[in-house]
Nucleic acid binder design. Structure first.
Lengths: 94, 94
DNA sequence: TTAATATGTCGCCGAACGCTGACATACTAT
DNA sequence: ATAGTATGTCAGCGTTCGGCGACATATTAA
């Protein structure tokens, strides 16, 4: 599933926590945060600490991955233009 | 690529930023954060705000996803045990 | 080498964090 | 109904954030 927002993270976490039959308090203990913090992430709090969020995912065995593809922004040549004059200048100097 | 730590996030961001030939300053402007903040995430600062990190990934067209699989914690029956007495009790009452 | 960019680090600031503890309101099971 | 559990929210507190501006140190270009 594609993740774009903090809320989506929260929903995934909540889902997995329930699958695991853990209360917020139990999960909090395992992750090493307060129960209120769990409430926050699950509700999509955007300013949650990245590290704690990752820690939570790890505890719940939720694996996160980035696609290393190339979705070109729009349409443009990716070929590097060459400044021929600069090349010549550089060649002269050595 | 699997992401487990804030540092891994940082490395991916840095990589993609360079592919896009953006300076930290330019990326910062696009994301709407300070240049110092970019320095922080790229170095794996664990307490970076989740929302800003996601915003950065979006700007760089880095897509994030969670695997909805089931990597069983170890080995145990996932079959729910049934409390037969409880069921009978419940049936009596209605 | 020299100049220009890019990157990393510092201190100061107001704002928000995450924690504890306490309540209030669901939800469940008996 | 009623107790037990789960969840959401509040205030108060010390800590850290992320922004700004200023430097110091790479890295790159001429």
């Amino acid at each position: 599933m594609r993740i774009r927002t903090p809320l989506e993270f929260g929903l995934v976490i909540r889902e997995k926590r329930r699958q695991r039959k853990l209360s917020q308090a139990e999960l909090a203990r395992k992750v090493g945060v307060s129960r209120q913090w769990i409430v926050g992430v699950e509700r999509g709090k955007s300013r949650s600490e990245l590290g704690l969020v990752l820690q939570t995912l790890n505890v719940l065995d939720i694996s996160l991955s980035v696609d290393v593809e190339r979705p070109p922004p729009a349409s443009d040549a990716t070929i590097e233009p060459v400044d021929i004059d600069a090349v010549i200048e550089a060649a002269k100097r050595r």
